[in-house]
Simulated scan of single mutants.
Amino acid sequence: MSAPRDHRVLIPVDVLEGEVVPETIVDAFASIPVVLLGYRELPDQTAPDQARDQYGDRARAELEELRSVFEDAGCDVTSRLAFTHDRLETFERVAVEDACDAVLVLNPAPVLETVLVALRGDVNVEYIARLLATILTGTDLELTLFHVTPDDSSQAAGTELLETARSELVDAGVDADRIDSTVVVDDSPTAAIVEASADHDLLVAGESRPSVRRVIFRDRAKRLARRTVDPVLVIRGEYLEGETTSNGDSAPDEDG
């Protein structure tokens, strides 16, 4: 296994809409550095500078209160504030700028005991295992590794993928008794994942290639988050792009 590096998770929160991070999420992510992104998505006719002047003080106060909740749980947390015309591009940009390994799409999480990890065939299993092992530190969360294959002929390859993932998790320090594996045959991966996630409290979707990041944020993870009541953790690619994208902001984010 290659040398580990620091991990970090981006948690975007619409602070002006009263969106909160459930205590179960705070506790589960206390073992990994977190970047809290307080954001407000604006209509096209509203300039970010105008919104910052009008709502900035309130948004900063809400963000600081949320940050203190993570700090009280012992979490290494930093915060950023953004007023933007495109929240998904802002999530993407900040994730790159702050070298975040994953982005948590918040949904209600009154209970957090089981995690469904949906793996594609092209993911970097070792990388995902290291990140998951970091998140699992200090928790009792149980994992189900999940893979959707289009037909019976590729089922063996899916089983091998999950066995590899299981071995990497165990090597990273996760108790084997906490890990289960399931391979299903279905020509609609998203539908199969949504159905399986109904029996779990957190959905983890892993991808490996930075070139498909836009698809991750704008399609698969967005649809999964919309169709499930669980939080969705989208694991980004191991190799982070150095370039940023334009997101409609006319002023830089504020950092804390």
Rank of each mutant, 00 (worst) to 15 (best):
L132S: 00
A225P: 10
T245P: 07
D255Y: 09
Y55K: 00
D57W: 05
E195T: 14
L233K: 13
P210G: 01
A3S: 14
A129P: 04
T144Y: 02
L37D: 11
V105E: 05
G256Y: 15
V9Q: 04
G248C: 13
P231I: 13
D49F: 00
V234G: 14
T159W: 01
V174K: 06
V184S: 08
S246L: 14
D171A: 13
L224R: 01
E238H: 12
V125E: 12
R93F: 06
A95K: 06
G206V: 13
V9M: 02
S246W: 14
S31D: 08
R8P: 11
D101M: 09
R209C: 10
V183Q: 05
L106N: 02
C75D: 02
G18W: 01
I193Y: 07
S154N: 00
T244A: 14
R93V: 08
G242K: 11
E243W: 14
D151Y: 03
R236Y: 01
V35M: 09
L169T: 09
V21E: 03
A82F: 12
D44A: 07
D186T: 10
T90M: 11
V77D: 04
A205G: 05
R58P: 00
D199C: 00
L66D: 05
C100S: 14
T164R: 07
E254G: 11
D86I: 12
Y55W: 08
N107W: 09
E97S: 04
R223A: 10
G248R: 11
E62N: 08
L36V: 04
D57Q: 03
D57I: 08
E142W: 04
R40I: 04
H147Q: 01
D27V: 07
V184D: 08
V77N: 06
R60E: 10
D14A: 15
Y127S: 00
P48S: 06
R93S: 12
D76Y: 02
T139Y: 03
E71Y: 08
E65A: 13
L203R: 12
F70S: 05
E126R: 03
A157Y: 00
I11L: 07
A157H: 04
Y39K: 01
P43L: 00
T46P: 02
D253A: 13
V96N: 15
P22D: 10
G173F: 04
G248V: 13
A172E: 13
A99F: 10
A156T: 06
D187E: 12
L112M: 11
S2T: 14
E168K: 09
V9P: 08
P108K: 04
E163G: 10
I25W: 07
A30V: 06
S167C: 02
G248W: 13
L37S: 03
I32E: 02
I216K: 04
E168Q: 11
L37E: 09
Q50L: 09
D57S: 07
P4Q: 02
E195Q: 14
R120T: 11
R60D: 03
R166N: 05
V194Y: 06
R220I: 14
D199G: 02
D49K: 04
V105L: 15
S2Y: 13
L81P: 07
A95R: 10
A59Q: 06
K222R: 15
A191F: 07
V148D: 05
E238R: 15
D122I: 09
V34W: 00
S211P: 03
